[in-house]
């Protein structure tokens, strides 16, 4: 069942001339993990803001079409109600961390305080969330004393702890080390398996292929491709349109021209590449 529906959505920021999203149609089912890819400026962040209600409630501007999440239409709702259903982790954690809290533990509790969760319930929820993302050891540190990647884990945790129905993530691992990135993708996958719906804007194609259910490719504010990771991420359209693709895909494509790759299907993940080059 669709929990997110975008119907003919077009959006223009207040001071820009051209729309950033153009006639976007998208449905996401409950518990689905959808990755959104696209070059910078394609509209990925704006799509995240739209799902999270920041467009139009915070940024204003002109939004036409229908945006419906968990049965509520964005124009008929306020941001205060909206955040109970949808959580957004920002691309840059500096923009998200409140600045009002001395420790990571308090920072994670901040959202729960704001929606009036009782103190006795708050503590175990924060502890559980810290353990889930592997930052229990940072609980007593100041959010500002952390490295970029650690701050990103804090930003993600402070959204997860709210247990939103729909989790929207805007490049949540951009400053993380490679294995940390893989771990966080694993955490996101686990949340999806527990029934949380995930929409993730991301450039890291290899991990999208390994963890996401579906990939939407955005270009100039429009949906270029929408389908299974193996189909979308190996489409020849991507490279032409300036998308990043996996080295496994680009190398196998070249190898195919040279007669060194025999299969029709190109690989996106390491496992697929290993299997294909062995046969």
């Amino acid at each position: 069942m669709a929990i997110v529906t975008l119907q003919n959505v077009t959006y223009k920021y207040p001071l820009t001339e051209a729309p950033v999203l153009q006639n976007v149609n998208l449905q996401v089912n409950e518990g689905e993990f959808v990755a959104v890819i696209g070059p910078n400026g394609a509209g990925k962040s704006t799509l995240c803001y739209t799902l999270a209600g920041f467009v139009p409630h915070f940024f204003k501007g002109e939004l036409t079409g229908i945006v419906e999440v968990a049965g509520v239409e964005t124009h008929q709702s306020s941001l205060n109600e909206w955040v109970l259903n949808v959580g957004l982790a920002f691309q840059n954690p500096f923009n998200q961390i409140s600045g009002a809290k001395y420790t990571v533990f308090e920072e994670i509790a901040f959202g729960l305080e704001n929606i009036g969760v009782p103190r006795g319930e708050m503590k175990p929820r924060v502890e559980k969330a810290l353990a889930l993302t592997g930052i229990s050891d940072l609980a007593d540190r100041s959010p500002y004393s952390l490295s970029g990647g650690q701050q990103q884990r804090v930003a993600l945790t402070s959204i997860l702890v709210m247990e939103p129905k729909v989790l929207v993530l805007d490049e949540p691992t951009s400053q993380m080390d490679p294995i940390g990135t893989r771990e966080v993708f694993g955490v996101i996958r686990t949340m999806a398996e527990r029934g949380m719906t995930v929409v993730l804007a991301e450039h890291k194609v290899e991990w999208i292929a390994a963890f996401a259910d579906r990939v939407v490719a955005l270009k100039d504010g429009q949906v270029l491709l929408d389908g299974k990771p193996g189909e979308v991420l190996t489409s020849p359209l991507l490279e032409e349109a300036g998308f990043g693709i996996s080295r496994y895909t680009s190398t196998a494509r070249k190898a195919k021209e040279m007669g060194l790759w025999k299969k029709d299907q190109l690989p996106v993940t390491l496992e697929e590449a290993v299997e294909g080059f062995r046969s």
Partner: peptide, 18 residues
Amino acid sequence: LATTYVDPPQLTRLGLRL
């Protein structure tokens, strides 16, 4: 590299596996 949370590059990993 794994002890400092780094994976080898994609094609290096593929080469190792093959």
